[in-house]
Design a binder for these strands. Structure first.
Lengths: 111, 111
DNA sequence: CAGCATCCGAGGAGATACTG
DNA sequence: CAGTATCTCCTCGGATGCTG
């Protein structure tokens, strides 16, 4: 029974989980990091409409939450990649479930 | 392979799923509607910090997305309750998974 | 009881220019 | 290539007051 802990977002596990993947892009970034590490430029190509600013900011926040790790492979020319941490990997079933739900229920409310 | 459909939030099933439960309160509202229909005032008591404005707005958006149904049982004095639709009920496993994840991983990144 | 109308501040998010 | 710095807009969400 989580009712008692779900009076305010700060105490609610559901809200805390959501707060990690909130924002316009984080879900998609995590989605693209599921299979393999990706370079900054690779993510930009996978998400054509994201700005560098939002990609950097989103990755930094995910890093601060312990979800992704940033690895510098070469300083010059710059070569950085991002991969899921072990903690981040535990989110994969959740991402899969969301992808599945979104695929199974495409905008039924808007019909 | 969802990679091709996940270039922009509008096309990404993950993002579309998230867009339904986005915002500060929707996850918690849905959580409290899992078990039984709730009256407006009951939800306010379950979520002491939410404002009427945000509760109304969140419920209206969930209604527009086909996730909850608003039922007027008596016009005067007003008696309204909210319950999950069949579509809304399909979100329960997702909510459970999020609650479980949030419980299992309490702010590890902030450690 | 169950709302609606209005105002307002904080921060999410985009565009653009510059850098090691 | 992989960023940082600024500027700006706009939406989210809170506060308050009023209503059938």
């Amino acid at each position: 029974m989580l009712d008692d802990t779900c009076k305010t977002p700060d105490n609610c596990p559901v809200s805390r989980t959501l707060s990690i993947i909130n924002g316009r892009w984080k879900g998609m970034i995590l989605y693209h990091l599921q299979e393999e590490p990706r370079r900054f430029g690779a993510l930009r190509r996978l998400l054509p409409d994201i700005t560098q600013r939002m990609l950097t900011q989103s990755l930094r926040e995910l890093e601060a939450d312990g979800i992704v790790i940033r690895t510098i492979h070469a300083p010059m020319p710059p070569h950085v990649d991002y991969r899921l941490t072990d903690l981040g990997r535990t989110l994969i079933p959740l991402l899969d479930a969301m992808a599945e739900w979104g695929t199974a229920h495409p905008a039924e409310g808007a019909a």
